[in-house]
Computed example of a mutant assay.
Amino acid sequence: MKRVMVIGATGAMGSSVVRELCRNEQVQPEKIRCFTRNPNSDAARQLAALDERIEWASGDSADEASIQAAIKNVDAVFCNTTFFPDGTVAAERRKGNIALEAARKAGVGHFIYASLDPATRLSAGQLSVPHYDSKAAVEADIDAQRSDEFILQQEDGWYSHHVSVLVTCPYMENFFDFFVPQDGELSDGRSGKVFRGPLGAERFWQMIALQDIGWFAAHLLSDLQTWGGRTLRVAGEEIAMPEIVRQFEAATGIAAEYAPMSEEAFLNSGLPNAHDPLNNMLIYREGFFERRDLAELRRIHPELLSFRKWLEKTEWRGESRMMRKDAATG
C-alpha cells in the first residue's frame, strides 16, 4: 500500500491510528498522509517526529475543496470526523459524506469510516446523543448506498466493496481527563479515590483502549477482501462501575469506591455541552447500546486490552493526564 490518509489525524483516535500505521507490519504504507486543520500544532509535531513516512495535508473536513485536494493519489483512508466544533448532527453528517464522495470520485481503494452506536434509534427516541447520532447517520448513509448498489446489481459498487465501517465506543483513556476520580474520604472512612458519574451500579459501561482502535483500523486496512463492504463493532470491555473500581483498587493498591451522582449534579458540573455526555452515560445505564461479541473480537485480536490489562499497561493510578486536544471535543 503506497499512501494511507488519516482524516482527523491529530485527535485522540486519529493519532492512535497514525501510531499503529507507523509500526504495523501488515499494512506498511510507504506514506502516511495526516489531514488536520493545523499541521503546526503540538499534537502534529509529536506525530511528525514518529516516522519519516508521515506527511501533512492541511484543511477543514467541512471544506469539500480541501478534502478533494488532500485525497489525490491516496490508496486508503481512515476517517474520524469531529462533532463539537460545529455542534450539530447535520454538520458532522455532511463532513462524513464529503469525505466519502471525495474518496469515491478519486478512486480510493479502501475507505474506513469511524462510527458510533445510533443512540436515538436504539432508545426508540428516548435518549439522543448527538455526537453518536451524527456518526451513526453517516453509517446509515453508507448502508443506504450499499443497498442501492445491490438493487442496481453494480458488480463492483464502491460502498459495497471498498468502504468499511469501524464502530467504536468510549475510550478507556476517558478516565485520564473526562472521568478522573477525586481524592476523598470513602464511605468506610478510608482515604482514596472516588469515581463519580450518573451510571447505575449494575449496568455495563462499554469501553476500548485507543491503541486497540488503532489496531482494528490497521487490521481492516490490511484485508480489503474480507472487510470491504463490512461493518465491525468493537470494544475491549463491558463492565459495571463497581467492578471497574474493584479492578482499579486491585491493580493499584489505592482504596476506591463508586459514588453515583444525580443527573442534575452532572449537568451543573461545568462540563461544556453537558447534556450530550450525560445522555452518553445514560444510554449505557438504560441499556440502549449494542453489545459486542468480545470473544470474537479477542479471536481476531488476541492482545485486545481488558480494563485490568489497560491499568497495568498504562500504570494509571487515578491521576489526570493529557489525552486529547480538548476534553470536550476529542
Rank of each mutant, 00 (worst) to 15 (best):
L122Q: 09
F179Q: 14
R196S: 13
A43D: 14
I142E: 06
D223T: 09
E101M: 13
E286M: 04
T10C: 11
A136K: 03
G228D: 09
M5R: 09
T231M: 07
E257R: 00
E202K: 08
I213Q: 03
Y171L: 14
D63W: 09
D141Y: 08
S15F: 02
S61M: 15
K72D: 05
E315Y: 00
I67E: 01
F307Q: 08
Q68I: 06
R317W: 00
V180Y: 10
D75R: 01
S160C: 11
H131L: 06
V89I: 15
G287F: 03
E155R: 15
F178D: 07
R317E: 09
E290H: 12
I151D: 12
P198Y: 01
T36F: 04
E303A: 12
D51P: 06
N174E: 13
L199I: 08
F195Y: 06
E264V: 02
G14S: 13
F176L: 09
W205P: 04
F289R: 08
A49P: 00
R324G: 13
D117C: 09
R246L: 02
R233V: 13
A57R: 09
G192C: 02
I244L: 15
T10H: 10
E139W: 08
V27A: 05
D143R: 15
A9T: 07
N24E: 07
T81A: 14
A140N: 10
E238W: 02
A217R: 02
G287H: 02
P277M: 04
R285L: 01
Q26P: 00
A209R: 13
V245E: 01
